[in-house]
Amino acid sequence: MTEPAPVPQPYSKLALLHSPTERAAEAAQQLRQCADFVPLEHADAVIAVGGDGFMLDTLHAMLDGKHIMPVFGINLGTVGFLMNPHRKTKDLAARLAKAKPIVVSPLRMDAVTQDGDAHTFCAINEVSLLRETRQTAKIEILVNGKVRIPELAGDGVLLATPVGSTAYNLSANGPILPLDSAMLALTPISPFRPRRWPGAILPDSSRVTFRVREPAKRPVAAVADQREVRDVAEVHIEIAREKCMTLLFDRGHTLDERIVAEQFVT
Protein backbone atom coordinates (compact mmCIF):
# COMPACT_ATOMS: atom_id res chain seq x y z
CA MET A 1 0.00 0.00 0.00
CA THR A 2 1.42 3.36 -1.01
CA GLU A 3 2.09 5.80 1.81
CA PRO A 4 0.35 9.21 1.42
CA ALA A 5 2.61 11.99 0.28
CA PRO A 6 3.70 14.27 3.13
CA VAL A 7 2.01 17.64 3.36
CA PRO A 8 4.45 20.40 2.29
CA GLN A 9 5.40 22.73 5.12
CA PRO A 10 5.82 26.33 3.92
CA TYR A 11 6.31 27.50 7.52
CA SER A 12 8.54 25.32 9.67
CA LYS A 13 8.50 27.36 12.88
CA LEU A 14 5.15 28.48 14.24
CA ALA A 15 4.39 30.70 17.23
CA LEU A 16 1.02 30.53 18.97
CA LEU A 17 -0.74 33.58 20.42
CA HIS A 18 -4.26 33.79 21.84
CA SER A 19 -6.59 36.40 23.29
CA PRO A 20 -7.29 36.32 27.06
CA THR A 21 -10.81 34.91 26.66
CA GLU A 22 -11.60 31.45 28.03
CA ARG A 23 -12.70 30.11 24.64
CA ALA A 24 -9.52 31.26 22.93
CA ALA A 25 -7.35 29.79 25.70
CA GLU A 26 -9.10 26.42 25.39
CA ALA A 27 -8.68 26.40 21.61
CA ALA A 28 -4.98 27.29 21.96
CA GLN A 29 -4.50 24.39 24.38
CA GLN A 30 -6.04 22.00 21.86
CA LEU A 31 -3.68 23.29 19.18
CA ARG A 32 -0.66 22.67 21.42
CA GLN A 33 -1.60 18.98 21.48
CA CYS A 34 -1.35 18.62 17.70
CA ALA A 35 1.56 20.91 16.82
CA ASP A 36 4.91 22.04 18.19
CA PHE A 37 5.26 25.78 18.67
CA VAL A 38 8.31 27.97 19.19
CA PRO A 39 8.77 31.33 20.94
CA LEU A 40 7.66 34.31 18.85
CA GLU A 41 11.22 35.56 18.29
CA HIS A 42 12.16 32.25 16.62
CA ALA A 43 9.06 31.86 14.45
CA ASP A 44 8.54 32.36 10.73
CA ALA A 45 4.71 32.53 11.04
CA VAL A 46 2.15 33.16 13.77
CA ILE A 47 -1.11 31.42 14.67
CA ALA A 48 -3.38 34.02 16.32
CA VAL A 49 -6.44 32.68 18.14
CA GLY A 50 -9.14 35.21 19.03
CA GLY A 51 -11.22 37.85 17.27
CA ASP A 52 -10.56 40.75 14.91
CA GLY A 53 -9.49 42.98 17.80
CA PHE A 54 -6.85 40.48 18.88
CA MET A 55 -5.68 40.14 15.28
CA LEU A 56 -5.23 43.92 15.05
CA ASP A 57 -3.32 43.87 18.36
CA THR A 58 -1.06 41.12 17.02
CA LEU A 59 -0.38 42.96 13.77
CA HIS A 60 0.32 46.24 15.57
CA ALA A 61 2.75 44.50 17.92
CA MET A 62 4.70 43.34 14.87
CA LEU A 63 4.53 46.79 13.28
CA ASP A 64 6.04 48.23 16.46
CA GLY A 65 8.74 45.57 16.56
CA LYS A 66 11.47 44.52 14.18
CA HIS A 67 10.07 41.24 12.84
CA ILE A 68 6.99 41.16 10.58
CA MET A 69 5.84 37.65 9.66
CA PRO A 70 2.74 36.00 8.15
CA VAL A 71 -0.26 35.50 10.45
CA PHE A 72 -2.94 32.81 10.26
CA GLY A 73 -5.91 33.83 12.39
CA ILE A 74 -8.40 31.42 13.95
CA ASN A 75 -11.70 32.99 14.91
CA LEU A 76 -12.80 32.71 18.52
CA GLY A 77 -14.32 36.20 18.52
CA THR A 78 -17.55 37.70 17.23
CA VAL A 79 -17.20 38.70 13.57
CA GLY A 80 -13.83 37.27 12.55
CA PHE A 81 -13.52 39.27 9.35
CA LEU A 82 -9.73 38.96 9.43
CA MET A 83 -9.78 35.37 10.70
CA ASN A 84 -10.32 31.80 9.54
CA PRO A 85 -13.05 29.57 10.99
CA HIS A 86 -12.27 27.53 14.10
CA ARG A 87 -12.24 23.79 13.43
CA LYS A 88 -11.84 21.14 16.10
CA THR A 89 -9.58 18.98 13.96
CA LYS A 90 -5.85 18.32 13.70
CA ASP A 91 -5.50 19.77 10.22
CA LEU A 92 -3.49 22.88 11.01
CA ALA A 93 -0.44 21.79 8.98
CA ALA A 94 -2.59 20.99 5.94
CA ARG A 95 -4.47 24.28 6.25
CA LEU A 96 -1.23 26.26 6.34
CA ALA A 97 0.17 24.36 3.37
CA LYS A 98 -2.89 25.32 1.30
CA ALA A 99 -3.39 28.83 2.73
CA LYS A 100 -3.66 31.80 0.40
CA PRO A 101 -1.48 34.80 1.33
CA ILE A 102 -3.04 38.26 1.25
CA VAL A 103 -0.71 41.27 1.44
CA VAL A 104 -1.99 44.14 3.59
CA SER A 105 -0.47 47.62 3.30
CA PRO A 106 -0.96 49.77 6.43
CA LEU A 107 -1.21 53.53 6.57
CA ARG A 108 1.38 55.68 8.32
CA MET A 109 0.00 58.67 10.20
CA ASP A 110 2.30 61.59 11.06
CA ALA A 111 0.41 63.91 13.40
CA VAL A 112 1.51 67.25 14.83
CA THR A 113 -0.35 68.63 17.84
CA GLN A 114 -1.19 72.25 18.58
CA ASP A 115 1.82 72.30 20.94
CA GLY A 116 4.13 71.12 18.16
CA ASP A 117 4.57 67.54 19.40
CA ALA A 118 5.00 64.95 16.63
CA HIS A 119 3.51 61.44 16.72
CA THR A 120 3.77 58.60 14.21
CA PHE A 121 1.49 55.55 14.22
CA CYS A 122 0.43 52.94 11.69
CA ALA A 123 -3.17 51.95 10.91
CA ILE A 124 -4.30 48.74 9.26
CA ASN A 125 -7.96 49.79 8.97
CA GLU A 126 -8.18 53.58 8.92
CA VAL A 127 -7.01 56.94 10.23
CA SER A 128 -9.89 59.08 11.45
CA LEU A 129 -10.12 62.69 12.60
CA LEU A 130 -12.91 63.31 15.12
CA ARG A 131 -14.21 66.39 16.90
CA GLU A 132 -13.44 66.38 20.62
CA THR A 133 -16.28 68.63 21.80
CA ARG A 134 -19.79 69.68 20.80
CA GLN A 135 -18.23 72.14 18.36
CA THR A 136 -18.28 71.07 14.71
CA ALA A 137 -14.83 70.21 13.38
CA LYS A 138 -13.51 72.27 10.46
CA ILE A 139 -10.83 70.51 8.42
CA GLU A 140 -8.93 71.47 5.29
CA ILE A 141 -8.16 68.48 3.03
CA LEU A 142 -5.16 68.29 0.71
CA VAL A 143 -4.20 65.47 -1.65
CA ASN A 144 -0.58 65.41 -2.84
CA GLY A 145 -0.15 68.97 -1.64
CA LYS A 146 -3.18 70.36 -3.51
CA VAL A 147 -6.17 71.70 -1.61
CA ARG A 148 -9.23 69.67 -2.56
CA ILE A 149 -11.67 70.70 0.20
CA PRO A 150 -10.88 74.13 1.72
CA GLU A 151 -13.17 73.49 4.69
CA LEU A 152 -15.03 70.32 5.62
CA ALA A 153 -17.43 71.00 8.50
CA GLY A 154 -18.82 68.00 10.38
CA ASP A 155 -17.96 65.35 12.93
CA GLY A 156 -14.72 64.50 11.13
CA VAL A 157 -13.18 62.59 8.24
CA LEU A 158 -11.36 59.30 7.72
CA LEU A 159 -9.00 57.61 5.28
CA ALA A 160 -9.45 53.84 5.00
CA THR A 161 -7.51 50.99 3.41
CA PRO A 162 -9.33 48.26 1.46
CA VAL A 163 -9.08 46.06 4.57
CA GLY A 164 -10.65 48.82 6.67
CA SER A 165 -13.23 49.81 4.07
CA THR A 166 -15.78 47.39 5.57
CA ALA A 167 -15.26 48.69 9.13
CA TYR A 168 -15.77 52.29 10.34
CA ASN A 169 -15.62 53.52 6.76
CA LEU A 170 -18.68 51.47 5.78
CA SER A 171 -20.58 52.67 8.86
CA ALA A 172 -19.88 56.23 7.70
CA ASN A 173 -21.38 55.40 4.28
CA GLY A 174 -18.00 55.07 2.63
CA PRO A 175 -17.37 52.69 -0.30
CA ILE A 176 -16.24 49.08 0.01
CA LEU A 177 -12.91 48.68 -1.81
CA PRO A 178 -11.75 45.42 -3.42
CA LEU A 179 -8.59 44.20 -1.75
CA ASP A 180 -6.54 44.44 -4.96
CA SER A 181 -7.90 47.86 -5.94
CA ALA A 182 -4.77 49.80 -4.85
CA MET A 183 -7.17 52.51 -3.66
CA LEU A 184 -7.98 54.40 -0.46
CA ALA A 185 -11.39 55.63 0.70
CA LEU A 186 -11.58 59.26 1.84
CA THR A 187 -14.89 59.52 3.68
CA PRO A 188 -16.54 62.41 5.60
CA ILE A 189 -18.14 61.66 8.97
CA SER A 190 -21.57 63.30 9.36
CA PRO A 191 -20.66 66.22 7.06
CA PHE A 192 -22.50 69.53 7.43
CA ARG A 193 -20.62 71.42 4.70
CA PRO A 194 -20.13 70.56 1.88
CA ARG A 195 -23.43 68.83 2.63
CA ARG A 196 -23.55 66.64 -0.46
CA TRP A 197 -19.88 65.70 -0.69
CA PRO A 198 -19.81 61.86 -0.64
CA GLY A 199 -16.06 61.52 -0.22
CA ALA A 200 -13.50 60.28 -2.73
CA ILE A 201 -11.64 57.18 -3.86
CA LEU A 202 -7.92 57.85 -4.21
CA PRO A 203 -4.95 55.89 -5.59
CA ASP A 204 -2.99 54.37 -2.72
CA SER A 205 0.06 56.32 -3.91
CA SER A 206 -1.65 59.48 -2.60
CA ARG A 207 -0.42 61.53 0.34
CA VAL A 208 -3.35 63.03 2.22
CA THR A 209 -3.06 65.98 4.59
CA PHE A 210 -5.67 67.21 7.07
CA ARG A 211 -5.30 70.70 8.58
CA VAL A 212 -7.53 71.63 11.49
CA ARG A 213 -9.21 75.04 11.27
CA GLU A 214 -9.80 77.02 14.49
CA PRO A 215 -8.15 74.29 16.60
CA ALA A 216 -8.47 76.14 19.92
CA LYS A 217 -12.23 76.50 19.52
CA ARG A 218 -12.79 73.26 17.60
CA PRO A 219 -10.28 70.67 18.90
CA VAL A 220 -9.85 67.49 16.87
CA ALA A 221 -8.35 64.09 17.74
CA ALA A 222 -6.61 61.82 15.23
CA VAL A 223 -7.01 58.05 15.66
CA ALA A 224 -4.88 55.43 13.87
CA ASP A 225 -6.91 52.27 14.48
CA GLN A 226 -7.02 52.32 18.31
CA ARG A 227 -4.24 54.88 18.93
CA GLU A 228 -5.36 58.42 19.58
CA VAL A 229 -3.56 61.76 19.43
CA ARG A 230 -5.61 64.63 20.82
CA ASP A 231 -5.57 68.32 19.88
CA VAL A 232 -3.96 67.83 16.48
CA ALA A 233 -3.09 70.72 14.19
CA GLU A 234 -2.03 68.81 11.06
CA VAL A 235 -2.01 65.16 10.01
CA HIS A 236 -0.20 63.56 7.06
CA ILE A 237 -1.15 60.05 5.87
CA GLU A 238 0.31 57.72 3.26
CA ILE A 239 0.89 54.01 2.72
CA ALA A 240 3.80 52.59 4.76
CA ARG A 241 5.14 50.32 2.02
CA GLU A 242 8.08 49.19 4.12
CA LYS A 243 5.57 47.76 6.65
CA CYS A 244 3.52 45.49 4.36
CA MET A 245 2.10 42.45 6.15
CA THR A 246 0.81 39.03 5.08
CA LEU A 247 -2.39 37.40 6.30
CA LEU A 248 -2.99 33.71 5.56
CA PHE A 249 -6.47 32.42 4.69
CA ASP A 250 -8.12 29.11 3.95
CA ARG A 251 -8.92 28.64 0.27
CA GLY A 252 -12.49 29.74 -0.35
CA HIS A 253 -12.52 31.82 2.82
CA THR A 254 -10.18 34.61 1.79
CA LEU A 255 -10.43 38.24 2.75
CA ASP A 256 -10.97 39.41 -0.84
CA GLU A 257 -14.00 37.09 -1.16
CA ARG A 258 -15.47 38.43 2.09
CA ILE A 259 -15.02 42.02 0.93
CA VAL A 260 -17.02 41.18 -2.20
CA ALA A 261 -19.66 39.34 -0.12
CA GLU A 262 -20.11 42.34 2.20
CA GLN A 263 -21.55 44.32 -0.72
CA PHE A 264 -24.50 41.91 -0.98
CA VAL A 265 -25.44 41.77 2.70
CA THR A 266 -28.99 43.00 3.25
Rank of each mutant, 00 (worst) to 15 (best):
F210W: 15
P215I: 08
N144F: 11
E132M: 13
G145H: 12
A182P: 00
E238S: 15
H86F: 13
Q29K: 14
E26S: 13
T266Y: 07
M83S: 12
Q9Y: 00
A160F: 01
A172K: 00
P175C: 13
S171R: 04
L177F: 09
P191K: 01
L247V: 06
T58N: 07
E238R: 14
G65Q: 07
R108K: 09
R148Y: 10
P10L: 08
L76P: 01
L170N: 10
T120C: 12
E151K: 04
V229W: 08
R193A: 14
V147F: 01
R258V: 03
V147E: 15
V208G: 07
I124W: 03
E262P: 00
I237Y: 09
F54P: 01
I176M: 11
L158Y: 02
V223M: 14
I141S: 07
L152T: 08
L247I: 03
H18S: 13
P203F: 09
L202Y: 08
K13I: 02
I74Q: 05
N84W: 07
L177V: 15
R196G: 06
T136S: 09
I74A: 10
A45E: 07
N84V: 04
A221L: 13
I201S: 09
T58G: 06
L107G: 02
S105G: 03
I141D: 06
D91W: 01
R87D: 11
